[in-house]
Simulated assay, not measured.
Amino acid sequence: MASADYNKELHIALLAVQRASLLTKSVFHSHSKGTLDKADASPVTIGDFGAQALIISALQHNFPGDEIVAEEEAKDLREKNSVKQTVWDLVQQAKLEDKSGEEALGGGIKDADSMLDIIDKGDSKGGSKGRIWAIDPIDGTKGFLRGGQYAVCLALMVDGDVKVGVLGCPNLPVDDSEALTENIGADASDAEGKGVLFSAVQGKGADSRPLGKGALAKESKISMKAVSNISDATFCESVEAGHSSQGDAANIAKKLGITKPSVRMDSQAKYGSIARGAGDLYLRLPVKKDYVEKIWDHAAGDLIVREAGGQVTDVEGKRLDFSVGRTLQRNKGVIAAPKDVHDTVIKAVSEVLGGK
C-alpha cells in the first residue's frame, strides 16, 4: 500500500537497502567474490544478484503494483547452478542476520528458483508514468572487487520525478564531519566506525544514519558545505577513466583555481559524500559522444544531494531527466555542487568542453 507522504516507502527502502548491504558485506570479505562476466564485459558478482533479490522481494511484498528497473538479470545464474546455490545461501544468511526486518520486508523468497524469477522482475522499461523503483544492487562493482568504495542504491520515481532515495555505503565513515582523503577510494574497509545509510524524501531534506542490523539507527540531518572560495573546494570523480574524463576534470579544476588533488572513488558514494559536506563537487564528464548514463546510477544520489541543498545537472546545466526510460538519454555527464557555486562550475565546464 502506497503512502501519500512517502514515509512507508522510505522506511521499507531503508530496511531493504540495509539488509542488502549486509549481504554485500559478507561477500566483500570473501576471497572468491564469484565474478561473472556479462555480455558488456562489466563484472558481476554474487553480491549483485543476492542484493537485487532481497530488495525486489521487499518491494513486491509492500508495493506489488509498482514497476522496477534493476541492473541485473538472472540468465547467467540459470546457466550456473553452483553460483545460483551460492547466491541463495547468501540470501538466507542475510535474512538470518537481519530478523527484525522480517515483518516489514515479508517472508519473501521461497527457494533458489523463485529467487531467479524475483531477480528478473527488474525488467521495467521505465518512463514518465506511474511508480517505478530503480535499483543498482552494487553500484561500483569494480570498486567492490578491488576493495574500494561501493553503494547499494534504491530510488522511487513517480511520473518520472524522484521522490525517495536511499544509498547504503558500507565502507564510508559513519561520521558526517570526516573529510574525504585521497585514498578513500582504495584499501577501504567496513571496520568499526564505517557504514552509513543516506536517504532523502522530496521536500523533506536529507539524512544519514549508521548502517547496522535490525532496527534502523537514529538519523541525522545532512547538508552541503558552504563554499566561500571555490579554489578551496574538494572535488570527487570516478576511479575508472572510462566512466569520466579525468583530463577534462583536471583542466576544469585548474580553471577554478582548485589545487587539491581530486578524490577518486567508485559509485554513488560520491553523491553521499558531497551531500554531507565531506566533499564539495562531483564531476562526471562525458568520455565519448554516444555514452549514455543509466538511471539507477544516479537517481538516489541526485535526490539526496538536491535535498541536502545542492544542485545536480548535466554539463549543459539541465536537470537530470529520469522520465525517458532506463537511461538518461537527454543528458550528458553530471555536475553536482552547492547551489551558490554551481553556475561557476558549469561555466568552467563549458569553457573546457567547448574548447575541444
Rank of each mutant, 00 (worst) to 15 (best):
V239K: 12
E71M: 02
V162H: 12
Q311S: 14
V263I: 10
G140V: 06
I109N: 03
Q202D: 00
S199F: 04
K142V: 05
K121E: 11
D340F: 00
V239I: 07
G193Q: 09
T344S: 04
L172N: 05
D343W: 07
I295Y: 15
S21F: 02
D176A: 12
I109E: 11
S323P: 03
D123V: 12
A337F: 00
K221G: 11
S350P: 07
P261Q: 15
E102M: 13
E219V: 15
A58Q: 12
A348G: 04
E293A: 15
I138D: 08
T259G: 07
K194G: 06
I295V: 15
A269V: 03
E237H: 06
G333N: 08
L211H: 05
N251H: 01
S238W: 09
R19V: 00
K142P: 01
Q246D: 03
H298D: 07
G126L: 10
A51M: 12
D176V: 09
L105E: 08
G34Q: 09
I346K: 06
V164Q: 08
A336H: 06
G185D: 10
Y150A: 10
F63K: 07
N171E: 01
Q149C: 11
V164Y: 04
A51L: 11
G247F: 07
D40G: 06
A200N: 08
D5T: 13
S220A: 15
N229R: 02
T259Y: 01
P338V: 04
L23K: 01
A337M: 09
